[in-house]
Write a protein that binds this DNA or RNA. Structure first.
Lengths: 205, 205
DNA sequence: TCAAAAACTTGACCATTGGTACAGTGAATT
DNA sequence: AATTCACTGTACCAATGGTCAAGTTTTTGA
């Protein structure tokens, strides 16, 4: 890796910690450059403004979260290849992973941007939307595989159901942060899992 | 009502619109005073700083939201006094109300403060926590009444289940805002309702 | 109706923040 | 050896959140 890329990564790491814990506005460029031991001009050499920083931060965040989710659900499929069981196992592994995070989930970049003060430009907002849509596709696929084998016991909009995991995670993060109870997030995911179990429960006849 | 209180209300109204749509940081005092046609000193006569503004905003928001929820669920109990049916009716009325909001839900003040840039003082954070806990109590009471009559088909933590409505609403607001789909919120509430229906479904034997 | 209190205005000032502009420099790459 | 990369340094700008002191008008209660 080149030297510039290393500095860029360092800046992103520092910025990410700040943004997720305090929000975008509270994370000043002055603060970032002080910690990174670089000058302001150096910072703007890498990111032409805060929009570009947000874009890079969001992209990186989305990629790493997607990788984590994929590895968890791949593992779940290894353990049981039935779509319903694998989904339920995946959700449990996911909840356990969230519970095991020592300081709780660091925060959701999507929600941080959503509630952020400075209005970002279209590029950032579009990417934010895309991240949610990617999660929708990711879970919709799994849900459809489940539904094909286990007909749901309620008429549900599959997109909305797929979105529910995003909603529960984001809502759970708000709960955890506001209540100061890191385990709150994992519990919410387990409740969502409980819903999935009911919705697709095999009919014993 | 005294004149000062009227001005204070006007300031709160303007600030609320700004904060819920753009976040705290993007809602500048200059902007608020311009719209209210008052001077900066006039503003600081009413609120000594942004913390006090946040406090007043959050308190008012929590009070009005609580009143809305209570009136919806009171109405639901009028329609059916069975705890389960009344809860399900209430959730449906709630979802419909959310769908009927012309511009979608204006946003959650709790989440806005949670993700807000400027770090608020302890008073604000404590009140934010209290608002979530009030919702917990409000729904826990209803859920316990349901559980007493209809034993749940899964071992669930009642506090977490009560918190789930907060999580789903906050998460749903994020979804609605990021996707630009105001109906997303109501759909999430309906999915939560679907879960409640499964969880407490009467056993037909 | 009159004095006191409430509800402001005027205006000066300050630190922080995001950002721009531009000239210059040492190290790495080609 | 030339060029590009990855910065530093300095100077500057507007907006924002706030503070302070002093003065003025408006309301209100006795």
């Amino acid at each position: 890796m080149k030297k510039g890329e290393l500095t860029r990564e360092r800046l992103l790491n520092i910025a990410e910690t700040g943004v997720l814990s305090k929000g975008f506005g509270a994370t000043s460029i002055d603060e970032i450059i002080a910690e990174a031991e670089i000058t302001k001009s150096g910072f703007f050499y890498h990111f032409k403004d805060k929009n570009e920083l947000a874009l890079a931060l969001l992209q990186r965040y989305a990629d790493t979260e997607a990788a984590i989710i994929d590895s968890i659900f791949d593992r779940a499929t290894e353990l049981d290849d039935d779509p319903l069981h694998s989904l339920l196992i995946g959700l449990k592994l996911f909840a356990e992973m969230l519970d095991d995070l020592p300081k709780g989930h660091p925060g959701c970049m999507v929600a941080s941007i959503c509630f952020s003060e400075r209005l970002f430009d279209d590029k950032v907002l579009k990417l934010n939307r895309q991240v949610i849509l990617d999660w929708r596709v990711r879970f919709r696929t799994k849900l459809e595989a489940v539904a094909a084998q286990y007909p749901p016991h309620d008429e549900v909009d599959m997109d909305a159901l797929a979105d529910m995991i995003s909603a529960v995670v984001d809502g759970g993060i708000v709960l955890s942060k506001v209540l100061g109870e890191p385990q709150a997030l994992g519990k919410q995911v387990m409740l969502f899992r409980s819903y999935i179990a009911f919705l697709f429960a095999p009919t014993n006849h």
